[in-house]
């Protein structure tokens, strides 16, 4: 295969994943939440169990008026949704799907790349919050920035533990080195990573920056139409990214029966299982208050992550 064709196939595959997977997760959220709450959820769009509900939502968002508040900083306001969405698209490039180089862009520093690019999301939060010229937005944005900065630390520490255990920063390399007993050995790190990942994508119970019952919708308050849809899409791609990273780092990625041929299937199954848990948590837990949220981060997650680092190092040296 010539280079350009290879490149084209990879880029098209990533864009397709970027457009399809969030829709699947979004639809699953509608249905799963509904059934957990004793409802049916969307039933009419597309006739069969409302499968086309999100397509209909997309069409609706496109038709809505795109409003920019009069006092807003127009350029920053309009740029923010794109900045929110873009890092997730880039991150998808580095996530391995199966063995034998089934990854859009194998990177020597894959893990580092992913964490660094995810960190850009906080700039989008601050941009949208400030440029909206709305007190609720600004409050939400400040909460969001404090939350993202705080939770970045346990996220990176937990990821560092796996990198140390595997002896590499390359994501396919980490999956390669993974073995089932890591489920036990790296369990605290997995938990810390998953929880702080949830906080990074501001999903309930960590949705204090959005908090619709007190801050209207936080930094998204002033957004309408397509730009608002961009933020929603960013949230769902965020679920995919966090689920995929948890899968790749802690759940063994493509490992499973007949991994040689069905590796990609195992990865996808695990990603969807983790996504299901993320949706489940939204239905189960009330929103954490701001002080509880910061306490959890600094007094629980960071010490646990540090202890895990010590444990990992000790086992690594002993073996």
């Amino acid at each position: 295969m010539p280079l350009w064709l290879d490149l084209l196939v990879r880029v098209v595959a990533v864009v397709a994943a970027f457009l399809v997977l969030p829709l699947l997760v979004g639809q699953a959220e509608h249905k799963v939440m509904a059934h957990m709450q004793g409802r049916l959820g969307p039933m009419y769009a597309g006739a069969f169990h409302g499968w086309a509900q999100l397509v209909a939502d997309g069409v609706k968002f496109v038709q809505k008026e795109d409003i920019t508040p009069r006092d807003a900083d127009r350029r920053v306001f309009q740029l923010a949704p794109v900045v929110a969405l873009f890092p997730y698209l880039i991150v998808l490039l580095a996530i391995p799907l199966g063995p034998g180089g089934l990854v859009a862009q194998p990177l020597d520093v894959g893990l580092f790349f992913v964490l660094a690019v995810l960190g850009i999301g906080v700039v989008a939060v601050l941009m949208s919050a400030w440029a909206s010229a709305n007190k609720y937005s600004l409050l939400g944005g400040l909460r969001g920035a404090a939350q993202l900065l705080g939770y970045e630390l346990p996220l990176v520490l937990a990821a560092a533990s796996v990198a140390m255990a595997a002896g590499t920063l390359s994501l396919p390399g980490i999956v390669e080195a993974w073995s089932p007993w890591w489920l036990l050995w790296q369990a605290p790190a997995a938990l810390v990573f998953f929880v702080s990942g949830l906080a990074e994508i501001r999903r309930p119970p960590f949705d204090m920056p959005i908090a619709d019952s007190e801050l209207v919708f936080g930094y998204m308050t002033e957004y309408t139409g397509l730009r608002f849809a961009f933020f929603l899409l960013a949230e769902y791609v965020g679920i995919i990214v966090i689920a995929a990273l948890t899968t790749v780092l802690f759940l063994g990625g493509w490992h499973g029966p007949a991994a040689e041929h069905l590796g990609w299937l195992w990865t996808l199954l695990k990603v969807f299982a983790v996504s299901f848990v993320i949706i489940w948590l939204r239905v189960s837990y009330p929103r954490l208050r701001e002080d509880q949220l910061q306490r959890l981060c600094w007094l629980v997650l960071v010490p646990v992550a540090l202890a895990q680092l010590v444990l990992t190092a000790a086992v690594k040296v002993a073996l």
């Binding site: 960190g119 906080v122 700039v123 601050l126 919050a129 400040l142 920035a145």
Partner: peptide
């Protein structure tokens, strides 16, 4: 980008 400038913007805001 992810930490220093964000802290700066945070303080300014």
């Amino acid at each position: 980008v992810g930490a220093v400038v964000v802290l700066l913007l945070f303080a300014v805001m």
